[in-house]
Simulated scan of single mutants.
Amino acid sequence: MHSSSVLPPLVIRTLGHMDYLATWQAMQAYTLSRTEESADELWLTEHAPVYTLGLNRREVRPPSRQDIPLIEVDRGGKITYHGPGQVIIYALIDLQRLGISVRSLVSMMENSIIELLAEYNIPAQARADAPGVYVHDAKIASLGLRLKHQRSYHGLALNIDMDLAPFLAIDPCGYQGLQVTQTRDLGLTLTPEDAAQQLLDKLSRQLGYTRAIVRHSL
C-alpha cells in the first residue's frame, strides 16, 4: 500500500445534474488518458431517469415501460435505474497505485454506505452473491465498476428520496422480485446533499485519503 503522502490529493467533483451519456463518456475519456501521476477522482452527480444495462446481459428482461431511456453500458452487472433523489458517486481510482483489488474497492464502497446508515441506527449488509447494500433484504444501493489497465470507473448509487416506481418495471440487478428501498422510506429526513457529503467523506477515508480538492465541474 502506498503512503498517502506520495499520492496526489484526491479530487472530488460535485457535478450537480448531469446527462448520463455525457458523464459516462467523460469517465471513459479520463480513464484512458490517465498517467501514473493522474489524481484519483470521485464524481458526485445525479441523473434524469434512465435505465442502464451492464455487460451481464444474459436473461435480462427489458423494462416493461418505454418512457424511460435504456442505455447499454460497459460496467459489470445487469440492469438498474438512476433518477433524481439518488446519490451517485463514480470512483475513478488507480487500483494498482493504491495496492488494492477490485473486490477491495467494492467492499470499500459498500462499507462506506453501511457505515453511513449505521450512524442512523439502520443495520445494512453487503451480499457476496449480489454486490450492493441491503436493508432487511431490500436493496438500498447498487454498485457496478469497469476496469481499464487497473483503473476503475462507474461506481455506486444510493437511494435517498426518489420515485422508486421505475424499479418495478425491471428485475433490479437481474433479480426478479427484488425489493428496493431508500432512506426516506426508512424514516430518515436526510437530504441527498447531506447524504452525499457524508458518503464522500467516508469513502475518501476508506480509500486512505486524508486530503481532497473539491471542484464543481469536469
Rank of each mutant, 00 (worst) to 15 (best):
S3R: 11
S3C: 09
S5Y: 07
V6L: 12
V6E: 14
L7P: 06
L7G: 07
P9R: 08
R13L: 06
R13G: 05
T14L: 13
L15S: 09
Y20G: 03
A22S: 13
A22Y: 03
T23S: 15
T23L: 11
M27K: 00
M27T: 03
A29G: 01
Y30Q: 07
Y30I: 04
R34N: 06
T35R: 09
E37P: 00
E37G: 00
E37F: 08
S38D: 03
S38P: 02
L42I: 10
L42K: 01
W43Q: 07
L44S: 07
T45K: 00
H47R: 09
A48I: 05
P49N: 12
T52A: 05
L55T: 11
N56D: 09
R57H: 06
R57E: 13
V60Y: 05
R61I: 15
P63Y: 14
S64P: 01
R65L: 14
I68A: 12
I68M: 12
P69V: 15
E72S: 12
V73M: 09
V73S: 10
V73Q: 11
V73L: 06
R75I: 14
G76W: 11
K78T: 13
T80D: 08
Y81K: 01
Y81L: 06
G83P: 03
G85S: 06
A91H: 05
A91D: 05
A91Y: 04
L92H: 03
L95R: 05
Q96K: 14
R97Q: 13
L98Q: 06
L98W: 01
G99N: 09
G99Q: 11
G99T: 12
R103H: 14
R103G: 07
V106Y: 15
E110S: 02
N111L: 08
S112R: 00
S112N: 00
I113G: 00
E115G: 09
E119I: 01
N121I: 02
P123R: 10
A126K: 04
R127I: 01
D129I: 08
D129C: 05
D129G: 02
D129H: 11
A130I: 10
A130D: 07
P131T: 12
G132C: 09
Y134W: 15
H136S: 11
D137H: 08
D137Y: 01
A138L: 00
A138N: 02
K139G: 09
K139Y: 08
A141C: 14
S142P: 00
L143F: 07
L145P: 04
Q150R: 15
S152E: 05
L156T: 08
L156H: 04
I160G: 03
D163G: 02
P166H: 10
F167P: 03
A169T: 10
I170D: 07
D171G: 02
G174E: 13
Y175N: 08
Y175R: 07
Q176N: 10
Q176Y: 08
L178Y: 06
V180E: 01
Q182V: 13
Q182D: 11
R184P: 00
R184W: 04
L186M: 13
T189P: 00
T189N: 11
T191I: 10
A195K: 01
L200V: 15
K202N: 14
K202C: 12
L203R: 00
S204L: 10
S204K: 07
G208S: 08
Y209C: 09
T210Q: 13
H216G: 10
